[in-house]
Computed example of a mutant assay.
Amino acid sequence: MEAVKTRVPVSQSIRYPEILEIARREGKVTVEGLAEHFGVTLQTIRRDLSDLADLGRLERVHGGAVLPSGTTNIGYEDRRSINAEGKAAIARACTSEIPNDCSIFLNIGTSTEAVAEKLLAHRNILAVTNNLNVAVTLARNPECEVVVTAGALRRADGGLTGDLTERTIRQFKFDIAVIGCSAIDEEGDILDFDMHEVGVTRTIIEQSRRVFLVADHTKFRRKAPVRVASVSDLAALYTDTDPDQQIVRRCHDENVRLVVVE
C-alpha cells in the first residue's frame, strides 16, 4: 500500500525569511505564486504579506508585494493599488478644507489623484497641475478651470517636469497647493526619488500661500534619497495613521496642522 504523503504546515517564522529571499531574487512576489510554493491558502499569504508590510520589509502592490527601495520608486500602477482606501479617506479630509472660489495646484502622485476625484463637486476652482491624470479627472468638473503646465512628459506616470514646468508655475500665486511625496523621514524631511521633480515641488511651495501634504502611512516607512522640503513648510499634513511622536512634536512645534483620518 502506497504511503500517504502529508504536507507539514510551514510556520510563519520560517515562511517570512523565504518570502523575503524570493522577493530579493525576483523583484516581486505574488499571492498566488507564494500560496502554491508553500502549499497554503491565498488568505494565509495575504496575511503574511500584510504583516511584512507592517514591519516595513515589503510594500504591498496589486496581487503581491515588492521590496521597499531607498533609491528607486516602484511602478506607478503598483503605487495606485497601495492603500487605495487610505488615500481616499485622506483625500476626503483634505478637500473638505479646500473652499470653493480658490486657486489650487496639484502635483504628481497617486494621492493627489485621489484628491482630484474628491474635487469634482467644488465650484469656481482654478486648478493648475503638472499631472495629466489629475487634469483628465478635473476636466469632468464643469466648474473647474484646468491649466496644465508645460514640461517634459514622464510617460511612466503622466507627470510633467523640468525648467519649463517651473517657469509655468512661477506665473501663478496659488491659494493652496496639494502635494504628495515618496517618503517622510523621522526628522520631518519630505523626500522624493526624482531630482527633476524635486525642483518643481520646491517651486510649487514657493508660489503657494498654503501647502497641504497628503501622505498615507506607508510614506513614513519608506526611504528616498532627495530632500524636497520640511514639514515646517506645510500648513497641514494629512495621513491615515498616527506618525511617530517625533513627527507629531515637529508638527506641533512648527504650527503645522496634523490631520489623521480613520
Rank of each mutant, 00 (worst) to 15 (best):
A23M: 05
D157C: 13
H217D: 07
L55I: 04
G70M: 06
G33W: 07
D192A: 15
N107P: 03
R155L: 09
D78H: 13
I169Y: 12
V61I: 13
S50E: 08
N130V: 08
E145D: 09
S103E: 06
G180R: 11
E145S: 13
V31H: 07
P225W: 08
A116L: 06
V134K: 08
E97L: 13
I104S: 03
R250F: 00
I108M: 07
E113Y: 10
A3W: 06
E143H: 14
L237S: 02
E26C: 05
R140F: 05
R155N: 07
P9N: 11
E2H: 09
A235Q: 10
L153W: 10
D157G: 09
D240K: 06
S81K: 15
L106Q: 05
E2F: 02
K173Q: 14
V200N: 04
D54I: 02
T6A: 06
G64N: 09
G188I: 13
Q207T: 14
T201A: 04
L164P: 01
V10H: 05
Q12E: 09
H62A: 10
Y238I: 07
N100Y: 11
V29F: 04
Y238E: 01
S13N: 12
I98V: 15
S208N: 12
I104D: 05
T161Y: 09
D194P: 10
A127C: 11
